Amino acid sequence: MPSIFAPEKLLYKLIIVLRDGDNVITETSEIASIIVNHFQNLFTTNNVLQDNNLIDNVIPHLVDDQVNSMITSIPSPEEIKKAVFSLNKDSAPGPDGFSGFFYQTYWEIIQKEVCNAVMEFFSTGFLLPNWNANSIVLIPKMQHADTVDQFRQ
């Protein structure tokens, strides 16, 4: 079986072959689909829940209606700026490619758009695409991993 990784010249290694049962998958879109389905199944909760009031009996209510109203109210531009400037400047960039350093350095240029987007979310629930996106890096659990369950995320 060929190596599942692309050439060593890359800064990262691509999964170019994946085994799914007895099938050897080489088509990039099929590999992606298998991986996405695997982790969706792994991280999706069962929607069939029994309400036995255990949560209400065990976990104390810490947020009353007044506090809930306060924390879900539309933040002011000053609160948004404070949140932006509390970001770690040295953190890795998000899926948008920008780190805290970018937002803090160019705040004077981007503040209006950032504030408008944040306030729109609090008033409509609409979140710009990829603002809540994450990247998952698959790390082989063993040398020559060739099935999705042989990777950790």
Rank of each mutant, 00 (worst) to 15 (best):
N132M: 12
I55L: 05
Y12T: 13
N37G: 07
E30H: 09
C115M: 05
S73T: 11
Q143H: 14
A133K: 02
K89H: 08
I71P: 02
A133F: 06
D65T: 08
V24N: 00
N53Q: 11
T147P: 00
N52H: 03
I35M: 09
L87Y: 03
L11Q: 14
F39N: 00
L42R: 02
K81M: 09
G94W: 00
Q66D: 13
S86D: 11
T72Q: 09
I35V: 15
N37L: 06
A6C: 13
N134E: 13
F151Q: 10
S123W: 04
N41G: 05
T147M: 13
I110T: 06
T124P: 02
I55C: 06
S123G: 04
M1C: 11
I136V: 15
V48P: 08
I4C: 14
F151S: 00
F5Q: 15
E79R: 07
V148P: 04
W107C: 11
V67N: 02
D20F: 03
I59D: 04
I35H: 09
T44F: 00
I35S: 05
N46I: 07
G125R: 10
Q104F: 00
L128R: 14
G21S: 14
L49S: 02
I71Y: 07
F39R: 08
Q40P: 06
I59C: 03
A83H: 09
A92E: 01
D96F: 06
P7R: 14
P2Y: 11
I4Q: 14
N41M: 02
